[in-house]
């Protein structure tokens, strides 16, 4: 029971990170019908940016107030990652809209390969470990068999930041003109353009928002694991994509729900079955969902038109 509770806590923290990345996949898929293969690497890039900003603030500028550093890192990572994704959309995807169907996917694959290797080349192949921060934990139970269920400050922070940002994001999508334009483009980009919606701008903003949320995930990921590597984009990227698919691609609540589920499945699988095969679990869920319930848990079914 204690192990179960502990895995539940770990799973929710991890799932929050996946959920944040999954939103980027699901929004881009919703609006231009493309799997943004590079999104996992954008997330990895943001973790690196967060790491460097963190080191710059603490080492160069000598800031010592951790909360202040955290907020500054978060903002800087969000801004810089958004800029990256804005440029990526401009260079790699914009002209391919309406081109052959596979062209954007392959371009995204190229972007993914580029980003992973770019970071690898400029930052080197070694793992980058940050000094541990926010290390305090709260002991929830002092279990009978000496097993202690703990809830770390990090985990609280992760879930809190995720919740706050999701609320803000929800407001933007549901209540602002931008959100309306976005939903209009999702339904019918051509018609939206005829009605005066700036489709290019709306899509660019979608990429910016997706990147900003991925950056939050990147900061939290760096905080949680304390180590980043240029190869770290692929697997979390696939898992977040799995989350988006599981929740129903195109559905925003679905992405969050899927993220939480994937986080929970992964931690429970590692705890009770085999940590070696934990990635197999995620990949299998991806395959099984796509084959048997392609519309996911909260998605709309796709009817074949003849």
């Amino acid at each position: 029971m204690d192990v179960f509770l502990q895995q539940l806590i770990n799973g929710i923290a991890l799932g929050s990170i996946y959920g944040l990345i999954a939103i980027g996949y699901t929004m881009v898929f919703g609006i231009i019908g493309m799997i943004n293969f590079a999104h996992g690497d954008v997330f990895m890039l943001s973790a690196f940016i967060a790491l460097i900003i963190f080191l710059a603030l603490t080492q160069f500028l000598g800031l010592s107030s951790l909360p202040l550093v955290f907020v500054l890192v978060l903002i800087a990572a969000m801004v810089l990652t958004s800029l990256w994704n804005f440029v990526i959309e401009r260079v790699a995807y914009r002209r391919l809209r309406g081109s052959f169907r596979l062209a954007p996917l392959i371009s995204a694959l190229g972007t993914s390969i580029f980003l992973a290797n770019f970071v690898y080349v400029v930052q080197g192949p070694r793992n980058k470990a940050v000094p541990p921060i926010f290390t305090d934990v709260i002991h929830i139970t002092a279990g009978s068999g000496g097993y202690k269920v703990t809830l770390s400050y990090k985990q609280i922070l992760i879930v809190a930041v995720t919740a706050v940002l999701l609320a803000a994001f929800w407001y933007v999508v549901q209540k602002t003109p931008l959100g309306r334009a976005q939903r209009a483009c999702e339904q019918d980009a051509k018609m939206a353009a005829l009605l005066g919606v700036d489709v290019d701008r709306t899509i660019a903003l979608t990429f910016v928002i997706g990147a900003a949320l991925a950056a939050v995930a990147g900061v939290l990921f760096m905080l949680y694991y304390g180590v980043v590597n240029a190869a770290d984009g692929f697997v979390p990227g696939v898992k977040a994509f799995t989350a988006a698919v599981l929740g129903g691609i195109g559905s925003l609540p679905g992405a969050v729900l899927g993220g939480l589920l994937i986080g929970l499945i992964e931690t429970f699988w590692s705890a009770y079955f085999s940590a070696d095969y934990k990635d197999v679990a995620a990949f299998s869920i991806l395959a099984i969902t796509l084959i048997f319930v392609p519309s996911g848990l909260l998605g709309r079914p796709d009817v074949e038109k003849v």
Binding site: L45, F48, I49, L51, I52, I53, L55, A56, A76, L80, V119, V122, Q123, G124, R126, K128
Partner: peptide
Amino acid sequence: PILALRAE
């Protein structure tokens, strides 16, 4: 940050 500063 990514190019101008290298964390090692």
